[in-house]
């Protein structure tokens, strides 16, 4: 108990908790769309492409996060133009982005004189090293997500559910698909400092997957995903402190446990069909 009480005295620990809370909104909202619209592999590709932007910006002496945001959003928008009939090309493009992004990042890392510990931190994340810039980025991403959901929630849901119906209803499907991917890109970069590029997909997918086992409606799935992500980030943080484990992997493993436990829950009773 003394250990836990002692944690609260630490400023960086409180910052880490705040970062976890801000990230939970992204995980809950954007993660739900990622799972429902099956954007998991796109998110992975964007996350790894972002590493190229990080490396290039770091080498050029710019703010690495800006490089990551620029490349992640550009990648997401590019992939958004390879949908529909070109889905197979999109799948291949994700694979290329995934590998080339990492390769570019590692080459720039190699070209940058000296050791680049911050950049490696983006690979595996360390929420305890979260900076004011990270908190601002997560906060801005939260605001962007909440604002867009408030303004265009119905259109985003329509596009995520059934693009054909949305198109026939006059919804600009490509615009909203790209907007959704841009939100995924922004979220991925905002989450990098917490769990890193390698593990970011887990934080976007595990909370909605657990939530789907617990609740049924879309609204409830989003809200429960936010709560689960909050529990994973803060619980993982405390656990990593107590066990002296790295924070990102601890959060992900805690999430895996939660997902396993949720799978043990009996499937919800399904209404018997009224008609044959």
């Amino acid at each position: 108990m003394d250990s836990i009480a002692g944690m609260w005295e630490l400023g960086f620990f409180r910052d880490a908790l705040l970062a976890g809370a801000l990230a939970s909104v992204l995980c809950g909202v954007v993660g739900t769309f990622v799972v429902l619209k099956r954007l998991v592999s796109i998110s992975g590709g964007v996350a790894h492409a972002a590493f190229g932007g990080l490396g290039a910006a770091y080498w050029a002496g710019w703010e690495p996060r800006l490089g990551a945001v620029a490349v992640a959003v550009a990648s997401a928008v590019g992939l958004g133009f390879l949908d529909g009939d070109r889905a197979r090309r999109q799948d291949a493009a994700i694979g290329v982005l995934w590998a080339v992004g990492m390769a570019i990042g590692l080459v720039f890392l190699h070209l940058t004189p000296g050791y680049a510990p911050n950049l490696l931190g983006f690979l595996f994340g360390n929420i305890l090293l979260v900076s004011a810039a990270d908190l601002w980025l997560a906060g801005i991403a939260d605001l962007a997500v909440i604002l867009l959901l408030a303004l265009f929630g119905r259109e985003l849901v329509a596009v995520a559910f059934d693009e054909e119906c949305a198109r026939l209803q006059g919804v600009p499907v490509r615009l909203f698909s790209i907007l959704l991917l841009a939100l995924v890109a922004l979220s991925v970069v905002a989450l990098l400092q917490l769990v890193g590029i390698v593990l970011v997909i887990a934080l976007l997918t595990i909370p909605p997957l657990v939530a789907q086992r617990l609740v049924r409606s879309l609204r409830a799935t989003v809200l429960v995903s936010i709560a689960i992500c909050l529990a994973l980030t803060s619980g993982g943080l405390v656990l990593s402190y107590l066990l002296d484990w790295p924070s990102g992997p601890t959060m992900v493993l805690l999430g895996a446990l939660a997902l396993g436990a949720a799978q043990l829950r009996r499937p919800r009773a399904v209404r018997t069909a009224l008609a044959g």
Binding site: L36, V157, F161, D162, E163, R216, T221
Partner: peptide
């Protein structure tokens, strides 16, 4: 239908 019936609607 082109959608996933698992979508929570």
């Amino acid at each position: 239908p082109a959608f996933d019936r698992g979508f929570p609607l």
